[in-house]
Computed example of a mutant assay.
Amino acid sequence: MIDLDDIDHQLIRSLARDATQSASALGRRYGLSQPATWRRIRRLEEAGILRGRRLRLNAESLGFGVTVFLGIKLATKGRVSLEDFERAVAAIPEVQTVEHVLGLYDYRLRVVARDLPDFERVLRRRIMTLPGAGEVEANVLLSEERLPGPLGL
C-alpha cells in the first residue's frame, strides 16, 4: 500500500469524474507540471489504485430499456465448478456484471434487455440453462440515483 497525499486524492477524485482529462489539464488544476502529474498517475496505476479507464455506454440509448438484477443460487454446489458457471455466464452478451457474493445467493448479475419480453427470453433460454443454475430472484431497476463514484477520499 502506498501513502497518498492530498494531491493524489484530488487526482483520484478528478479522474473518477472524468478519466479523459489530460495530465497537463490536471497538472494546471493542482499546480503540477504535466510530467509530475503523469508520474503520479502512473504510480497510482502501478499500485493498483487506478485500474484502467472505461467507456460507459448508455444502454437505454442503445435500445436496452430494461435493467434487471438477478440473484442466482447454484443448485448443485460441488457438482459444477464455479469457473464453469462464471465462464458460461460471462459469454451472455446481455449480462453486464457477474459478482460472486456471500449471502442468500451465490451470484449477482446485472442484465440488460430491450424490454420485458426480451428479458424473459434471455432468462429462459440463456440464464436458466447455465450449468448449475438453481433458484433465481429478479429485481427490475426503476431508476439509478447515484452512480459509482470515488471512495470517501
Rank of each mutant, 00 (worst) to 15 (best):
L116A: 04
I2F: 01
T20V: 08
G52N: 10
G71E: 08
G134I: 01
R13I: 15
I12P: 13
A138M: 10
V111T: 07
I12C: 14
S143A: 14
R40M: 07
G103N: 02
Y105N: 08
R146I: 14
L130K: 06
G52E: 14
N139C: 02
P117L: 01
L82V: 04
G63F: 09
G134Q: 01
R124H: 13
F64H: 12
L74W: 00
D118P: 04
Q21F: 09
L151H: 07
I49Y: 13
D5E: 07
L123H: 11
Q10E: 15
R51P: 09
Y30P: 06
L50D: 12
I49F: 12
L151N: 04
V112T: 07
P148M: 10
R43D: 12
G48I: 10
R17T: 14
P148D: 06
N139G: 05
I12A: 14
V101N: 02
V80T: 12
S33R: 05
E144Y: 02
A59K: 00
Q21W: 10
P131R: 03
L142G: 02
E45K: 13
E135S: 02
V95Y: 00
Q34E: 13
T20D: 11
G149V: 03
A90L: 06
R40L: 09
K77V: 07
L116E: 12
I72G: 06
P35N: 02
G63L: 11
S61C: 12
S143E: 15
N139S: 10
L62S: 10
D106H: 06
I127K: 05
T67D: 08
T97R: 01
E99V: 04
A16I: 13
G27I: 02
A59M: 06
R121K: 05
V95D: 01
E86C: 01
L55G: 11
F69A: 08
D84G: 00
V111W: 03
P117Q: 05
A25Y: 04
L26E: 04
A138Q: 07
Y105Q: 06
S24R: 15
L15W: 13
A133E: 01
R125A: 06
L15Q: 14
D106Q: 03
R110E: 13
L70S: 08
R87P: 00
R28D: 10
A36D: 05
V68D: 11
E145K: 14
H9Y: 14
A91G: 07
V140C: 00
V68Y: 10
T76N: 13
G134W: 01
T37A: 04
L55T: 14
A91R: 07
G103W: 03
L153T: 09
V80Q: 00
R108S: 10
L102G: 03
P148R: 11
F85D: 00
L44C: 09
A88P: 04
L50E: 12
P93Q: 01
I49V: 15
E86M: 04
Q21A: 15
R125C: 00
A25T: 12
L62W: 05
M128W: 12
L102K: 00
G52L: 08
N139V: 09
R54M: 15
